[in-house]
Amino acid sequence: MDSLHTKKKIIKVRNLTKKFNEKIILKNINFDLYEGESLAIIGASGSGKSVLLKNIIGLLKPEIGSIKINNVETINLSRSKRENLLLELGITFQHGALFDSLTIWENVIFKIQRIKKLTKIDGQKHALDIIKNLGLGPDILNLYPSEISGGMQKRIAIARAISSDPSILLFDEPTSGLDPVTGSVIDELIVKSVKRLGASAITITHDMASVSRIADKVILIDDQTVSWTGKPNEMLKSNNAKVQQFIKALNPKLFK
C-alpha cells in the first residue's frame, strides 16, 4: 500500500455530503483513488454507492464537499471543461444503458465516433477489435442490444467504456443480475481491461466474490458514510460489524 501511496492521486473526494430534498444520502465521504489502483466501493442496497458514483461523474451535484479528478475540482466546472474531463473516463452503468436504437458496433464506437468520424467499415472493424478482447465474435456486431443476453450486454457496456482507452474506469454494479459464472467472467474482463489500459478503476458492487477478484482496496459505505477502508484480505481480520456481515455472505477462502 505504501508504494501505491507514493503514486499520484487520480480521484480525491473530501467531505462529500449529498441530500435528496432533506434526506441525507451521503455524509462526509472521504477517499482517494491512486494511479493504477482498483478500488471497490461496497455497501448494502440503498446505501448510496451509485449516488456517490453519479456525484463523481457530475450527474449529481453534492451539497457540500470537493471532488478532484486529476487535480481538477469538478464541482461547478463549466460544461465544456466537464465534457473534456469526461473524455478521460470510461463508465458502465448498473443496467448497461446501451442505446436501444443503435446496433452493437454503433454502441461500442459511440464515443470515438464523436471524435474520429469513422466510416461504417472502419467502425465495425474497430468495434470487432474491442469485443474480440472481451470474448465476443463478429456475429453480434449488427444485432441490437435487446437481441443479446444480459451477460453480453454487460460485456458490450464494458467494451463501450474502454473503447476510447480512458485512464479512469468506473463500473456501477457490473455483475448485478448475472449468474456467478458469468459474473466471474465479467470480473476477469474488468481486471484484464484495467491492466491493459494501465487505468485506475472504481467498481461499485455488493458482490463480495467480485471484490476479492478485482479490488486492491475496498471502502465500505454504511450509515451514509465510509465506515471501513482496507485491502480485501484485511476484511477477514476486521472487527467492524458491517464488514463481518459482508464476510459471512461468502466463502472466506476467496480472500486467501
Partner: peptide, 12 residues
Amino acid sequence: TEQIDALGTLGT
C-alpha cells in the same frame, strides 16, 4: 434506463 445519463458521459 440511464441511457440519457450514459449519453452525457460519452461526450454527447
